[in-house]
Design a protein around this nucleic acid. Structure first.
Lengths: 207, 207
DNA sequence: CATTTTTATGACTTACGGTCATTTTACAAA
DNA sequence: TTTGTAAAATGACCGTAAGTCATAAAAATG
């Protein structure tokens, strides 16, 4: 009597198929303005069917954003070298963020858009930020920095996470949105990031 | 033959009236989702008439955002004390931004939304950022800081403007959007801003 | 006052997200 | 195999809101 299980599996597969198609669609020519009808055509499903798997368009984009968070988290985990000091890891994480921005512009866009979204766990009912996993990593880095003495410890860790993350998003936002603008002012993207880190790394050093 | 002039004046007045009404409307209950029909009703004009004065809804919001930039610029000019050092002025400007955020949440929202918009001067054809006036002030402050020795001078001024502005927008964005989220994590808005400045002010000091 | 030009109008078109009555498919019982 | 029923799928349809345009009103002209 594995029918229930098989059905569940099929349901999940279809959901994944839709999500994959949505990824291709929304990262394509029309961007996020691509329509649900487009998605129905691409998936070769009726429009109504889509709504059996996702309550609305937003939730699809949100699911994709969640996927983006996962990708980013994986990269951070893979690249961060525990042998390095906290402050070095902060610097490295910046490189990873920028690399992610260049490498996965679509997911970056989603991340910037849904960064502040609160998601509620259906099981436990707990509320947390979509980007929580990334913030967790940042928090660990900061803790390490404080304990190894490479990071000032006169600001609460979680506050510092929020500050650094907000600043960074501001920078990434400028990079992703202003691509065409920056060169009007003869400013190099690369230098913005470098400059940002030159400022905050010094600002984060112990007194 | 002052008819041409009078007509032009009347046209401008009506434009202004529409803009004022739009300001009230879009800052009200429905927010930016208020409709053009709403606006038509509020102004007691036909919907079509609105489109004689503005090409589309977006352009109305953009015009309001421009107004917001003007307000902010005025505040900055009024409050910045030339007797203070560059670094002090940077700190002060931060207070002004935050005050503006609290005081004019609607204009702040518009500013965050259209901050990266490029506007093209119809006369000269020159392109510049909507927020250019604000960036100009920031630039002047930084120049002052560099010349009075309170600010590191190893980063190009315009780049530094972009960096500081981007960081700040990131912070303001967090404050304006996450109002309800921050307290989930027991974080005080005030401290975010304070912390941000504690980090960057130190980061901006000369080596 | 007749004629032309400018300004105003709101019914209409279009586009898209989302719904739901109906149909199709998958499975179970007879 | 046939019949009954629950689950899954469908696309015509609905509501909403931005934007258009043929028509009308108002203003200027001579």
């Amino acid at each position: 009597m594995g029918i229930k299980e098989r059905k569940l599996r099929e349901k999940e597969n279809r959901r994944k198929d839709i999500l994959d198609a949505a990824g291709k669609l929304f990262s394509g020519k029309k961007g996020m303005d691509a329509t649900m009808d487009d998605l129905a055509e691409l998936t070769e499903l009726g429009k109504g069917t889509l709504y059996l798997y996702f309550p609305n368009k937003e939730s699809i984009l949100l699911a994709l954003a969640g996927k983006g968070v996962g990708l980013l988290r994986k990269r951070l985990n893979r690249s961060l070298d525990d042998a390095k000091t906290g402050i070095e890891q902060i610097s490295d994480s910046g490189d990873i963020f920028v690399e992610f921005l260049r490498d996965k512009p679509f997911y970056s866009q989603l991340l910037l858009k849904y960064e502040q979204t609160v998601i509620t766990d259906e099981e436990t009912g707990e509320r947390s930020l979509l980007v929580e996993p990334v913030l967790e990593i940042l928090k660990d880095i900061l803790k390490k920095g404080k304990s190894d003495g490479t990071l000032r410890d006169d600001i609460d860790t979680y506050e510092l996470v929020t500050i650094l993350w907000s600043q960074l998003l501001g920078i990434l936002n400028t990079l992703s949105v202003r691509k065409d603008i920056l060169h009007i002012y003869n400013i190099d993207e690369e230098w913005i990031v470098k400059g940002h880190y030159r400022v905050i790394l010094r600002g984060l050093m112990p007194a």
